[in-house]
Design a protein around this nucleic acid. Structure first.
Length: 778
DNA sequence: TTCAATCGTCTTTTT
DNA sequence: GACGATTGAA
């Protein structure tokens, strides 16, 4: 079954072993150590593990032992003394994959993996590098990492300052453009030609440049920057690049088909050092084209890395013959592929089942029936998964699970740290540690409600921008003046005092205790306790969970670094539950039994994918279907509904074109009529559904009417000609006795100057303290 | 400033 | 149909 080539006597070039003699084990140790982990590998797998010199591309089909090859290769590099742990770069896309790799290397070499600092996600590794050389990219080592909320908030501010109508040009859209540019490794000045003129009448690239400048002001980087700035660091500093090229002697890349241009450039620069790069991927599992992944990277590998060795892993250890046959035949319809032929030596197993259903509810009922039957046959729920194309499909299943009392978990839903309450809480912590973090402060300044709304925030903001100082500092100045209403002044003063108090305790109080204190004293906990909505209770639970997780870190700062990059929820609490997730998040997982609902044209393949990217989109959807099928070890069932409710109205659906691409011999059609009998109530339900089908018409017409009406944008937005002087000045250049004008208080004369605080005798309003940025000379 | 009503949107998702 | 975001009134 497995061919053992001459692996044991594999060559070890003299030149290399000389450089790190202290790490080279004795010959006898090596001779004993090698076979142990190589013996279980098949020929190509062994080749992928032991081919240590020069670039290697491992084309690893689904279920062919990709992770095993990667981890064994690392163990092999370590074991053969070629490199020390800190000389190996191993990149993944997700923290989950990084964690798994770490633990599997650990079990291979016995014990824990210590000192592999360069094993992690692209983003985590880039962040690590950036912090060490922050000054070279105009940051400081303690720069903050923006989450998407912060990013949008910042862009909104930018658009407002530029008088761009947020209706016509939403911040999210700009964020998408910027993300897209960053994915392709483009800094603002590199955005070419017409593309620079997208968004807001040709201001796209300009806004991008402004955004980048603001990030530097804030000493912050967004996710895309982590890679892009790291790339710039390498490109502009040859000595830094050389340092890493020399240090990272072996490079391993997981899921290479998912790399975007920026990541590709990043890898290529580093690989130019020694060239010992090993990329593992599967072009047939490239499903992230829509967020910048370039299948081209894997298709071009041999050209990019001359002398590359390509190893194909085609023996599938996961699925039975029929499942593999169906999946292979399906993917064979794609034209843009490197081409692999998966095969298995295992049984044919059972055929892939196929069933049509009347509507999505019946689909959920049918699948739950099957699940209960599997359960009766002794299968555990943990080994059962339902993989949907779009998350709205989940609802029907969740409803059904709840009525039947079947336990289930949703994998890959909103991440723990992306939840509102977690972000609010961490914003409090962040603002406590780092008073210059404007975005975090602004996030919670009025949460819970403190009477500090948009109007107040705008005043603070104007002042902060005018003097180029952090928002919290601007607030500090303003509360000493009469610029704000007394109630707001009091409220803001209290908040600032609280932050000062908390900040003073950072060193003295254990960080978890301080965190709890902050949440209590700020009124944040109380806010949710008073909230009667059903979600409030779980939010409070999440906050407790957050504190619990914090115990694993030794300081608030240490925790915050991880929360932005590494933290994800661990849905796995060991209980026996059905797994429910999207096809995208199923990649890399496997289950005994897999249900694939919603194989309808328009859903899989998704209509929007077809509309946006045409045949390339169709191929990506087909890969998605292929990923779904290949998750199954022994049991796979495809279903489709003839009627599905989307956007609240019923729409007829036709079976996915992919269904007819499956080979007859591998598929067994289940008779819907037979199935109906066992439900008993199904016919009645169908009639109900048929009635509700007519429901759609008026609503649909209404929707049409609305659509026809809309899209008549008014003229260009009226420009408010109140130019805000954003020129900053260190100190005020007003003089005592000068006559000035203030928007709110009118005309007056300056009595006293105290930094940038002015005491003014106003003609109508009397004596007031104001800030210089709010008055103009008269 | 805040709350309530209305409007508009509705693939996939990591970091 | 449901959710979030935004707008308008108290």
């Amino acid at each position: 079954m497995q061919k053992n080539h001459a692996q044991h006597a594999h060559p070890l070039p003299d030149g290399d072993s000389q450089e790190i003699p202290e790490a080279t084990p004795s010959l006898s140790a090596r001779a004993m150590a090698l076979p142990a982990y190589l013996d279980d590998l098949n020929g190509p797998q062994q080749e992928a593990v032991t081919e240590l010199d020069g670039p290697v591309l491992v084309l690893a089909g689904a279920g062919t032992g990709k992770t095993r090859v990667l981890t064994t290769r690392i163990a092999h590099i370590l074991n053969s003394g070629r490199a020390r742990p800190e000389q190996i770069l191993a990149v993944t896309f997700t923290n989950r994959a990084a964690r798994e790799m770490k633990s599997r290397i650990g079990s291979l070499i016995g014990g824990q993996v210590e000192g592999m600092p360069w094993l992690g996600t692209f983003h985590a590794i880039s962040a690590r590098i950036l912090r060490r050389h922050a000054e070279l990219v105009d940051l400081t080592p303690s720069f903050t990492i923006l989450d998407t909320d912060d990013q949008i908030r910042l862009l909104k501010q930018l658009l407002e300052a530029e008088n761009i109508d947020p209706k016509l040009y939403p911040a999210r859209q700009l964020a998408a453009h910027i993300d897209n540019w960053k994915n392709r490794g483009l800094l603002p000045d590199k955005v070419q030609g017409g593309e620079a003129f997208v968004f807001a009448e040709g201001r796209g690239a300009n806004l991008y440049a402004q955004y980048q400048a603001r990030l530097k002001d804030l000493n912050a980087a967004d996710f895309g920057d982590l890679l892009l700035e790291c790339l710039r660091l390498f490109q502009e500093n040859q000595t830094v690049l050389s340092e890493y090229q020399d240090r990272l002697r072996y490079m391993l890349v997981d899921e290479y088909q998912d790399t975007n241009v920026a990541q590709y450039l990043w890898l290529r620069l580093l690989a130019q050092g020694g060239g010992n790069i090993c990329c593992v991927g599967d072009d047939d599992q490239s499903i992230y084209g829509w967020r910048g992944a370039e299948v081209g990277n894997i298709l071009r590998f041999e050209r990019d890395f001359p002398g590359a060795k390509v190893v194909r892993l085609e023996e599938n250890y996961r699925s039975t013959g029929h499942i593999l046959g169906a999946a292979s035949a399906l993917i064979a319809h794609n034209s843009e592929r490197l081409g692999k032929t998966l095969h298995t030596t295992g049984d044919d197993g059972e055929k892939v089942r196929l069933q049509g259903c009347w509507d999505d509810e019946e689909e959920a009922r049918a699948i739950c029936e099957d699940i209960e039957q599997l359960q009766r046959q002794g299968h555990t729920l943990n080994e059962i998964a339902i993989l949907v194309r779009a998350s709205f499909q989940m609802r029907a299943f969740e409803d059904r699970f709840v009525t039947l009392g079947l336990p289930y978990r949703v994998i890959g839903g909103p991440r723990f740290y992306e939840r509102q309450e977690i972000r609010d809480a961490t914003a409090y912590f962040e603002a406590t540690l780092n008073p210059a973090n404007d975005l975090k402060f602004e996030r919670i300044v009025n949460t819970p409600r403190r009477g500090l709304g948009d109007a107040t925030l705008n005043i603070i903001h104007t002042h902060a921008r005018a003097h180029a100082i952090p928002v919290m500092q601007a607030a500090r100045t303003l509360v000493e003046t009469e610029e704000l209403k007394p109630s707001q002044r009091r409220s803001l003063t209290d908040l600032l005092a609280q932050f000062d108090r908390w900040r003073a305790m950072v060193e003295t109080m254990p960080h978890t205790q301080l965190a709890e204190l902050i949440l209590d004293e700020s009124g944040y906990t109380t806010m949710w306790q008073n909230d009667k909505s059903p979600k409030a209770a779980s939010r409070l639970d999440n906050l407790k969970e957050l504190i619990r997780v914090m115990e694993e870190y030794d300081s608030l700062a240490g925790f915050l670094e991880h929360v932005s990059l590494v933290m994800d929820r661990d849905g796995d609490n060991g209980e026996d539950m059905i797994n429910l997730m999207t096809l995208h998040s199923a990649k890399g997982l496997e289950f005994d039994s897999v249900f694939l609902p919603g194989w309808e044209d328009g859903l899989l393949p998704h209509q929007r994918s077809l509309d946006d990217t045409g045949s390339a989109g169709l191929e990506e959807e087909r890969r998605l279907a292929h990923v779904g099928l290949t998750r199954a070890k022994a049991y796979a069932k495809i279903t489709f509904a003839q009627n599905r409710r989307t956007h609240g109205l019923w729409q007829p659906a036709i079976p996915s074109r992919f269904i007819d691409e499956l080979p007859e011999g591998d598929v067994q059609v289940e008779d819907p009529a037979n199935q109906n009998g066992s439900y008993g109530v199904s016919r009645f339900d169908s009639e109900q559904s048929a009635f509700s089908g007519d429901y759609g018409t008026p609503g649909w017409q209404r929707a049409r009417a609305r659509k026809a009406q809309g899209s008549a944008p008014g003229g260009p937005p009226t420009l408010e000609l109140k130019a805000i002087d954003t020129l900053s000045s260190a100190d005020t250049d007003f003089k005592v006795g000068e006559r000035i004008f203030h928007q709110k208080f009118g005309y007056g004369a300056i009595e006293r100057i105290d930094g940038n605080k002015l005491t003014v005798e106003f003609e109508k309003a009397g004596q007031k303290k104001v800030v210089d940025s709010f008055v103009v000379r008269h």
